[in-house]
Nucleic acid binder design. Sequence first.
DNA 1: TTGAAAGCGATACCAT
DNA 2: ATGGTATCGCTTTCAA
Lengths: 354, 354
Amino acid sequence: MTTKRVTSIDVARHAGVSQSTVSRTFTPGAGVSEAARRKVVEAASELGYTPNAIARSLSKQHTDIVGIVMGRITSPFHPYVLEKFINELQNVGKQALLFSTPPDSEIDELLELVLQYQVDALIVASATISSDMAEACARNGTPVVLFNRYVLGANVNAVCTDNVEAGRLVANELIDAGHQKLALIEGKANTSTAVDRKKGYFDRLQERGHVDVVADGGDHTYEAGFEAALRLLDRDDPPDAIFCSSDNAALGAMDAARYQLGIKIPAELSVVGFDDIPAAAWPSYSLTTIRTPVNRMVEATLDLLLDRLEKPSMSPEFLLLPGELIRRHSARLAGVQEINTSPSPLLTKPQHGA
Amino acid sequence: MTTKRVTSIDVARHAGVSQSTVSRTFTPGAGVSEAARRKVVEAASELGYTPNAIARSLSKQHTDIVGIVMGRITSPFHPYVLEKFINELQNVGKQALLFSTPPDSEIDELLELVLQYQVDALIVASATISSDMAEACARNGTPVVLFNRYVLGANVNAVCTDNVEAGRLVANELIDAGHQKLALIEGKANTSTAVDRKKGYFDRLQERGHVDVVADGGDHTYEAGFEAALRLLDRDDPPDAIFCSSDNAALGAMDAARYQLGIKIPAELSVVGFDDIPAAAWPSYSLTTIRTPVNRMVEATLDLLLDRLEKPSMSPEFLLLPGELIRRHSARLAGVQEINTSPSPLLTKPQHGA
DNA sequence: TTGAAAGCGATACCAT
DNA sequence: ATGGTATCGCTTTCAA
């Protein structure tokens, strides 16, 4: 029952031309007479012919597909990032082969698989690649760019938010607002994002004389934030301000404080998040947070990638983009500050078409 | 500077065996002596050889990649679904080539591209495929299964939530709770999901004597829900119950009612959503909603797909899975009902490993 | 412009 | 078990 696939040879026969001519007809810049082209096109549609991209890839030595490895697609703004990557890639005629890394699994063996599929380039988002693997990619000429993660010492392209600086921003804001007992609800200890945010926050706090800052948490989820807040707020010396290393955790912390403990925000407690997901702007939360420059990050990543696709010899770059403090109503203000009412950039409809 | 790709021939030469033997070494069930295998493996690692999946695909006549076309990756539970698809696929040794359809764009031309890449099978999630294209796929033996969408009359595999029945469920619940002025905040008129939910709701309402039900909205987003609620509640005869065709819209509606209009939920207004996204269970909302059986849908989709990958002749199936009404605190209860406290299924960590 | 033929990097059948 | 070779479907010289 399975009809045999129709190939360019079939079309050639049917159109009374050579197979080469058929190939040329489907190659944008090639030289084919109008007459021949017409015959081929007709024969093709009669037979229901579609060029075989796999065969073409083998012959042309490139696939036009870029691999995307993403740790947890469901994480805060990842779907948005992914969609944007895909759309932009499609716009320049490239396909995306998507891989998701099981949390805490070895990404290197996965990469080997990705490379087998001869991807022209690789985007690794929120997952880390070993320097060995990075070199392996470099060796066979596959450009790699890390998104939202970097690897120290390795010569790999990477674009990140400046998490350390953002952490310092939050520390300043909270101290300036007069808070005394600062706390942190942190993320996973093995992710550079969480570690850097914590570092910036703690460092700056210490510089300004706040030494004993308590931390809890361990995951960038709503639930983790909820539980951590409960524990933090149940202490003998509960904090009057909590910096949550992610918006999700911040929302959980707010709900825990309000609905479980009856604490008023920001009158009795300030909460600051990180990411600026859409829900942060909702009136139920109105969360003060750090806005991650997602759009610029995605664009920078794509630029880096596309550049190196054309000119593989370009040397690696490391882009560190600043986060922006968005003041809303979940944290006490320091002096006269404006409330920021701009919507989350994640709401911007992704552009389609050129 | 670009090192030439190393092929099985290079390895063969280096190991002093034939190219066939190299190939066999990398083919799971093939017969190679321990001695030969050892030599090959060593040579391969010395040279940094990786099998070329593209060449293999051409020769084996299948790619082990399945295409996934998804309309809006950022829609409510799509990231979760996508992640699950990817993981399960990876577990059975298949790769995913991902495409996102620009909203309201012609999906058929995109499909042509997908097919060019010789995908072994195709998942179309929340996007519609023309019967023509469905037939084209059938002709060249590419199994297709639609996720969360169906096409009437066409012989295509599909798995959906029973949106009509779910709509009726909501109608009953609201009427039973004694509501008089019912309203609907609907989704896009050209999506079967939105249309079916509306149909079930309206039909059942009418059957029970509620004829003039007002509808507003037009998109399954928070913002659309917010705006629609504002308009609905501003009428001379404002509704005392609103069914929102999606959770996102419901959250927007709740925020609009509470924070813009000062309306008490559920005392003065009942709100019911659809999807049961994680935020629906958060105490800030505690949204009564219809839980979409996502997990079973994903599993069913994969089952259908994998079955047909093995046995292409299997006839198409259409699975309609029931939604479940999850009672929380955003809607008045009909008589003595239990509040459902089970967490959103979307929180379940996706399984990795077999 | 067009056709013939040599790859591209594997798989698989056929002898040995 | 191993090697030789045709084959997968296309791109791309090279001549004509």
